[in-house]
């Protein structure tokens, strides 16, 4: 009789522990997936920038410094890895692009160029996608981190080495809100 009770308790306990482990794994996968979504959009932005520079170069004779700055920040961001560092480098690239957007205002010819307009929608949308994907990523990280901290799942998290994930945060407070970009 006692043996059966001990056995039953052991089975129930194991089931609970397995359940907690599985939900940690699921949440961590969601974080990974959310990161992959950001990554796709960041790569898309890297791909768009050379086209953009190529298109605007002919018009913007007096903005060499701004253009070079964008190219440099892009190269830097591409080399960076790790969520926190990446966020910082991407933030710098975003603000370099922001300066370019301001400069574009002085070139009415450029703003009438069809090729540029198409690129502009693509870039605007890619930046929105980065922001929205980041919003979702940070939500997922919050859920996962909460799970690794609260009792009793923190015990399982400690045993199996689930570590807290970094938020994708951008330093510039103005960049925290989703940009309502319209060049």
């Amino acid at each position: 009789m006692t043996l059966i009770i001990i056995l039953a308790v052991a089975i129930i306990l194991t089931a609970i522990l397995v359940g907690m482990y599985n939900s940690l794994v699921r949440l961590r996968n969601q974080v990974k997936n959310a990161w992959a979504q950001i990554d796709v959009q960041l790569k898309r932005r890297y791909d768009l920038i050379p086209n953009l520079i190529e298109t605007v170069k002919g018009y913007m004779k007096h903005e060499r410094e701004t253009l070079e700055n964008v190219t440099r920040m892009r190269a830097q961001a591409m080399e960076t890895s790790g969520v926190a560092d990446k966020a910082k480098a991407e933030g710098m690239l975003t603000s370099a692009l922001g300066q370019l957007k301001i400069a574009v205002e002085n070139y009415p010819d450029l703003k009438a160029n069809q090729n540029f307009l198409a690129l502009q929608e693509e870039l605007t949308s890619t930046e929105n996608k980065i922001s929205f994907a980041r919003q979702n990523y940070n939500d997922q990280v919050l859920f996962f981190n909460n799970k690794t901290e609260v009792f009793p799942s923190n015990i399982i998290a400690g045993m199996f080495g689930f570590k807290k994930e970094d938020f994708f945060e951008i330093d510039n407070p103005a960049e925290r809100v989703v940009p309502k970009v319209s060049f």
Partner: peptide, 16 residues
């Protein structure tokens, strides 16, 4: 419809 398609994709990403 590039803009429409982009907007849908943006919202898909926001919603995960």
């Amino acid at each position: 419809y590039p803009q429409l398609y982009n907007v849908v994709e943006e919202m898909r990403l926001a919603a995960g």
